[in-house]
């Protein structure tokens, strides 16, 4: 349904060109949930903002690639076309719902707005639909609560409102950018469950952006792991966790305290992610990789198949030189 190929988004800053997203490809099908995982600065959010034409230009610029939503290339579409797509065919929810809700407007006004704009609905019908939407995301007394202002909701409830708003036009794709990071664990679980059930009812495709591997393992069908602007591994979720094919993925999994035995030192990835203003020849992860050879530092790797629907960019793993399971 959405097919992104070789997306490149660079930021032209005073310090130099930041290659925030450097040749990223992925696709998502109807009803599918994909995860884009990585640490801060890996380019996962920039990827999705690029799709929606929300990159501040300058300093940002989309340097290349295509993102086909059906027949439409999102990267070359006009602003007028994008306005029709955003909020109608692709919706987005964010980490902090407060930043995307207008604090001075009632929830009702904000909920019916996409219906009035995109569906040209009558105000009364739209309001009726909005109350339904709130009920669907589990807000009690929806017909009363719809008249409240954003600050009158708790963090979890606000995120529910955001989900209702994002899904009210029945979009084909929902982009969720760290939607549960700011929430408590108990609330996080409820929100994740809610996204899942709503998705099943509506058949929406979901792109889940997060740094949290545990969240990914619970909600995604397929996962793309990003590091320093590139996808380093792409795999069905089960395979990614049972048989990672990239040293970075494996290292990330091992750094989670939950998996570790208590008492032994926690597995760590030494060092820091690279400075993206400096062009790098080899694998971006090589400086921190325990398996890296001289070749890894100098020869740029490419994503290659490592099983069914499974791809890795690790050259040594592609040749079967290293074992990542034990």
């Amino acid at each position: 349904m959405l097919e992104v190929t070789d997306l490149r988004t660079y930021f032209h800053t005073r310090a130099g060109i930041v290659r925030a997203v450097d040749g990223v490809s992925f696709s998502v099908e109807k009803g599918q949930t994909i995860g884009i995982v990585g640490e801060s600065g890996c380019g996962k959010s920039v990827t999705c903002y690029s799709l929606l034409g929300l990159i501040p230009t300058p300093p940002g610029r989309i340097e290349g690639g295509r993102a086909m939503l059906g027949e439409e290339d999102l990267l070359s579409a006009s602003e007028a076309t994008m306005r029709k797509i955003r909020g109608k065919r692709i919706s987005m929810i964010f980490q902090d719902p407060m930043t995307s809700l207008n604090p001075y407007l009632r929830i009702s006004t904000q909920l019916i707005e996409p219906l009035l704009i995109h569906e040209r609905m009558e105000k009364k019908t739209a309001l009726h639909r909005a109350i339904e939407a709130l009920e669907e995301v589990g807000i009690p007394d929806a017909s009363e609560r719809i008249r409240s202002y954003p600050h009158e909701f708790s963090g979890g409830m606000r995120q529910r409102v955001m989900i209702a708003m994002a899904l009210i036009t029945k979009p084909e794709i929902l982009i969720a950018d760290e939607p549960t990071t700011a929430l408590d664990v108990t609330v996080q679980k409820q929100i994740l469950d809610l996204i899942k059930t709503r998705q099943q009812t509506l058949g929406t495709a979901v792109i889940f952006i997060t740094h949290d591997l545990a969240v990914v393992s619970n909600v995604c069908d397929h996962v793309y792991v990003m590091y320093a602007g590139k996808v380093v591994e792409s795999a069905p979720t089960t395979d990614l966790f049972s048989a990672p094919e990239h040293p970075y993925t494996r290292a990330l999994q091992r750094s989670i305290p939950a998996i570790q035995e208590k008492g032994e030192p926690l597995y760590t990835i030494e060092g820091l992610p690279p400075d993206l203003t400096k062009p790098m020849d080899g694998c971006h992860f090589a400086p921190r990789c325990e398996f890296a050879t001289e070749e890894c530092q100098t020869v740029a790797p490419t994503l290659q198949s490592a099983g069914e629907h499974h791809e890795t960019s690790c050259t040594r793993r592609q040749r079967g030189e290293i074992d990542l399971i034990h």
Binding site: V185, T186, Q188, K189, A214, S217, T237, F241, I256, I259
Partner: peptide, 14 residues
Amino acid sequence: KTLLEAIPRVAEHI
């Protein structure tokens, strides 16, 4: 118990 149940766990897949 509620807190523990809510923690998303990776372990389920392994």
